[in-house]
């Protein structure tokens, strides 16, 4: 086990293993996303209050979930990078940021598309929406901060610090609907109680969430390979690689 772990820490071995892993994430991701889309749009029954409008949940909730999951993963990697000076951890944090930012944007945009017909507004400054917007700015800040340094190692450390500080926003997003009056409704799926959704609706949502997770894994692995290469440039093992690949 430890031997395997150490081997994984070696860039050439990691680069190769990661490349082999991608299809194992990507193929099930596509299958689940297609299944979830068909199920969510065509098979799941429409809602008693919102009719077919509620179907936006199948793209909105998984995006929100990934936006927050991606941030926590990035912050943990950043902390490991800062404490143990692990290049691979910094590379992972750098790979997470743009993907997390994209899903945060998707969460806000699909939420807006849901809010207009149901609530009557595209946007309002309630606790959930504002804290989610802050998350987007945190992601963009982390990306910009890393880019602002000429020295990549310094950029990594500065971005890591911002990522770690920003993690306080995550519980704020999660609990905003419980702590304050908000326009956004409380959580439908929570660990402590049964989900407030019937199984014929919930099943497709869970399939979608797993599909999104695998999609994230596939794209983050692809980006991670790029980040490893950038951090290892000049190394001997790269000579063997084909830039046309």
């Amino acid at each position: 086990m430890w031997l395997w772990f150490h081997k994984l820490g070696s860039p050439p071995y990691f680069y190769r293993t990661a490349g082999r892993l991608i299809p194992w994430f990507a193929i099930p991701a596509v299958l689940l996303l297609v299944a979830g889309t068909v199920g969510g749009l065509a098979i799941a029954p429409s809602d008693y209050e919102q009719g077919d409008g509620f179907r936006i949940i199948y793209v909105h909730v998984p995006s929100a979930y990934l936006a927050m999951f991606g941030y926590v993963a990035m912050a943990i990697a950043a902390a490991i990078g800062l404490i143990w000076r692990m290049k691979l951890a910094f590379a992972f944090a750098a790979a997470c940021a743009p993907i997390g930012a994209a899903f945060t944007f998707l969460c806000l945009a699909t939420g807006s598309l849901w809010g207009k017909p149901m609530w009557g507004v595209w946007w309002d400054w309630d606790g959930r929406m504002t804290s989610m917007l802050v998350l987007l700015f945190l992601y963009l800040g982390v990306i910009a901060l890393r880019g602002a340094f000429d020295d990549a190692a310094k950029g990594d450390r500065a971005a890591a610090l911002l990522a770690i500080v920003g993690v306080v926003n995550i519980p704020i997003i999660k609990f905003s609907v419980d702590w304050w009056n908000t326009l956004h409704q409380p959580a439908t799926i929570s660990k402590l109680s049964a989900p407030s959704m019937t199984m014929d609706m919930l099943g497709w949502l869970l399939i979608m969430i797993v599909g999104y997770m695998l999609f994230f894994a596939a794209v983050v692995t692809l980006r991670l390979r790029g980040e490893v290469l950038l951090r290892e440039r000049g190394a001997r093992w790269i000579r063997g690689l084909d830039s046309r690949a």
């Binding site: 692809l222 390979r225 790029g226 980040e227 790269i238 000579r239 084909d242």
Partner: peptide, 15 residues
């Protein structure tokens, strides 16, 4: 991103 990293890394090794 991956492709560009590959090109850049390969150039610096002057391979």
């Amino acid at each position: 991103h991956h492709r560009r990293a590959l090109v850049e890394a390969a150039r610096e090794t002057e391979a």
